[in-house]
Design a protein around this nucleic acid. Structure first.
Lengths: 93, 93
DNA sequence: GGTGCTTGTCGGCGCTCGATGACATAGTAG
DNA sequence: CTACTATGTCATCGAGCGCCGACAAGCACC
């Protein structure tokens, strides 16, 4: 999933936290920040410190990647890989 | 490229800026931050604000992605895609 | 030599982040 | 109904971010 603003991080964090069945307080405790901070992040607050976000994503088992657009591996990112489509393209050559 | 700390961002930013042939001052001007801030980022300063980093990456034409580890699209990240290998695996089924 | 550009670093200052604690509002279980 | 939990929000306050301006060092070129 492409990250173009904190709102994207907010969505990813909230979704992942729900999936893991954790409360904001539990996550805050693991990451070592206040519950209010977690709440702010999930609200999409833009001016949060980068290293805290990294620790949050780490605790939620979320990976952050950075790439140059147009690189090969980048093609599949954000929309998933449909192997059937790939193979159909291959057979159609 | 995996981002596990600001040092990774620093490396990506510096490399990309060099590739684009821009000075720290030029980048700072585009992003709308001070030159000292760009310098700090490229030095790996951890406590920088997230939205500024996003604007920086945007100006450098770098993409930031967030995913759950183990997702399908994630498999290929960081080591590229060798289509021949993929197709060989397919034929061998 | 001198000029120019780039980068690293510093002191100062204003401003805001994040912590804390408290409060109110749902929602749920008993 | 009463607890209890989770979440959103607020005021206060200390600490640290980012800006500005300046300075020095490095490097290239003439």
């Amino acid at each position: 999933m492409r990250v173009s603003s904190m709102r994207d991080v907010a969505a990813a964090v909230r979704g992942r936290r729900k999936d893991l069945g954790l409360s904001q307080a539990a996550v805050a405790d693991r990451v070592g920040v206040s519950r209010a901070w977690i709440n702010a992040v999930e609200a999409g607050k833009p001016s949060v410190e980068f290293d805290l976000v990294l620790r949050l994503l780490d605790q939620l088992d979320l990976r952050l990647d950075i790439n140059k657009p147009g690189s090969l591996g980048d093609v599949y990112k954000g929309r998933g890989v449909d192997l059937d489509t790939v193979l159909d393209d291959y057979r159609a050559r």
